[in-house]
């Protein structure tokens, strides 16, 4: 059907503000970041055109490879744990367990807390001082049952361990959101499918595997895309947990970017990291969507 002139005007009027804002606050800064990535600039003196040497330096730099490795590690570990737990909780709540409304709120709660507050909360949880809940619990365990047989307190947020300590925090924060996402999709599945499966004697796991999962596949794919994007752009968790001073053992791409630009005043290199982050997020999103493409099931 062909659009009328009025319809076109209507669309244009509604699109224009968003387009303008996107252009001013996303497209132009993005284009300028691309420009900076091709320059050597300290933020104060005149920029020098250096072509792709920032990118060459980036690929030769151990630090960038390590930071990228940390991002990938967090994407795989925290990402898969989040998806699996969210699916599990959503499936359990979908089966109408007693108190499911309370659980739904409880699981979603961490998602409404600001990420900086979450990081500070976990810093206290991991603390090696008397405030450290986890170390306090381990000390109590050691005293009562003689386990764990390690020297306490464990410096969970010490630089060598920090990347691993971030994983539970990310999982705790994100699981509720994905659980609600998946649960909403599950609510849309007709109850009759499960009734038939019950009559056929299919186990609860079989029902989940053969009915629920195939029918919410598209939502799960969207969830995975969100997680990949979020993990590659991760910043606050590491920045706060490492007291705003990340180093080789703890850097992720976004903290490296920040440190290069705002601590070392190497704007060109930092912008090259930003450009590469954009490319990686874009490629990872495309790849996730491409590999999970399958004909949607209609019901």
């Amino acid at each position: 059907m062909k659009r009328t002139w009025e319809q076109t005007c209507f669309i244009a009027v509604f699109l224009a503000p968003a387009l303008l804002l996107f252009t001013v606050f996303v497209a132009i800064p993005g284009a300028r970041a691309l420009l900076y990535s091709l320059q050597k600039w300290d933020g104060l003196s005149e920029p020098k055109w250096v072509g792709f040497s920032n990118f060459v330096a980036l690929f030769r730099d151990d630090l960038f490879r390590i930071a990228l490795g940390h991002n990938l590690f967090l994407t795989v570990t925290a990402g898969s744990a989040t998806i699996l737990l969210a699916l599990f909780f959503a499936a359990v709540l979908h089966r109408r367990v007693r108190g499911s409304a309370v659980f739904r709120v409880a699981f979603f709660f961490p998602n409404v807390i600001a990420s900086v507050a979450v990081a500070l909360l976990w810093l206290l949880l991991y603390s090696t001082t008397d405030f450290g809940v986890l170390n306090g619990f381990l000390a109590w365990m050691k005293e009562t049952v003689g386990w764990p047989a390690v020297s306490l307190p464990i410096p969970f947020t010490g630089k060598p361990y920090l990347v691993y300590s971030v994983v539970p925090m990310l999982v705790w924060t994100a699981t509720g959101f994905y659980m609600v996402l998946f649960l909403a999709a599950m609510e849309g599945i007709p109850e009759s499918f499960y009734e038939v499966a019950e009559l056929e004697g299919v186990s609860p796991f079989g029902q989940f595997w053969h009915i629920t999962l195939p029918l919410i596949r598209e939502v799960v794919v969207v969830g995975v895309v969100f997680l990949v994007i979020g993990s590659l752009k991760l910043f606050e968790a590491v920045w706060i947990m490492d007291n705003e001073w990340p180093s080789k053992e703890t850097h992720v791409m976004a903290t490296l970017l920040y440190q290069k630009v705002f601590s070392e005043y190497n704007v060109g290199y930092g912008s090259a990291v930003a450009v590469l982050m954009f490319v990686l997020v874009f490629v990872a999103t495309l790849a996730t969507l491409r590999f999970s493409r399958r004909e949607a099931l209609e019901y």
Partner: peptide, 15 residues
């Protein structure tokens, strides 16, 4: 101090 490698300046100074 044990655990001090994971302490901030204020935490350790408080100790």
């Amino acid at each position: 101090q044990r655990g001090s490698l994971a302490m901030s300046h204020t935490e350790s100074q408080l100790q």
